[in-house]
Simulated scan of single mutants.
Amino acid sequence: MPSRQPLGRQYSIHPTKSRPTYRHARQAWSTAGIGTDSARRRAARPKDLSSRDAASTITDAGLLQLDDPDLPDGWQMFPDMTVPEYRRYAALRVEALNHALRGIPPERVRLHVCWGSGHGPHRDDIPLRDIVDLVLAVPAGCYSIEAANPRHEHEWTLWQDVRLPEGASLMPGVVGHATDVIEHPELVAQRLLRFAKLVGAENLIAGTDCGLGNRVGHPEIVWAKLEDLSEGARIASRALSRHSR
């Protein structure tokens, strides 16, 4: 496979062929876990029940959202890994996460994955197709994914071949943080209708690619995007209602 170049929000762009420097390495994906399979398992497995206890406390009161951008984005940390090697590495992290979620009702859990919120080329993002089974292996009632930016919007077709777990819903991003341009409600509706045909309207929730916050130019842009997301969802709902008659 062609080598991945240091191109993207994580890397500085250098003219040399030296290994790129990852600027935003997170503790959960520390290279301390790299080595033998047994060493990786020891590094990934929770050392105590504190994570599960905290999760139980949250779900007893409502919904637990797990933000795991590193499941796709951790790929950028290891440019020498092949996809199969990275899948083995990521699978151990999923195993650790599932260990922490034991006993938590899936319907109380929402999992968010993305490829990082930085504004960059994202040319070397790992395709969703290569990891979607790992994402869906986490016992969650809802899966939130990026689907509105120009690098990943095309991946909606993946759901022609991939089935959600029984009882789960999908929350694709239909507005995003990658641009200050405010998505038109009709575009939002079109995006939702594509997914509705594949996963069923009853299993679909309109979402954002990632947290908007200060990732766009002004708070008014955030509110405008959310307003048009809501209007687009209403347009899609009306269209689905007409078609069901």
Results as ranks from 00 to 15, higher is better:
V162A: 05
G62V: 04
D68Q: 10
K47T: 12
T82W: 08
A140G: 13
S30G: 14
I34R: 12
L64G: 06
I126F: 07
L111P: 09
R110W: 08
D133V: 00
D70C: 10
Q160H: 12
V83N: 08
A96H: 02
A54I: 04
V113N: 00
L63N: 01
S50I: 05
A61P: 00
A90E: 09
I104N: 08
S117D: 10
I131T: 06
D68R: 02
D73R: 04
T31Y: 04
R26M: 14
Y86N: 03
W159Y: 11
A90D: 10
D130S: 15
S51V: 11
W156H: 12
T157F: 01
R41V: 09
T157E: 10
D125K: 01
V94G: 04
E85R: 10
H154V: 06
H112I: 02
D68I: 14
G74L: 01
T157V: 11
P127R: 13
D161M: 07
T36S: 15
D53T: 11
C142I: 07
L128F: 11
S144Y: 09
A140V: 11
E95V: 03
P69C: 11
C142S: 14
V109N: 12
D80F: 02
Q65K: 12
F78P: 01
D73Y: 08
V132M: 14
H24M: 08
I145K: 03
I104Y: 08
W29H: 02
P79Q: 03
T82Y: 07
E146H: 09
A90F: 07
Q27H: 11
D67E: 12
D133I: 00
H154Y: 08
R151N: 12
L71H: 04
N149Q: 10
R42N: 09
A140R: 09
D80T: 10
A28Y: 11
D124Y: 12
A28I: 12
S117R: 01
P106S: 15
P105A: 14
Q76K: 05
D125A: 07
G33D: 08
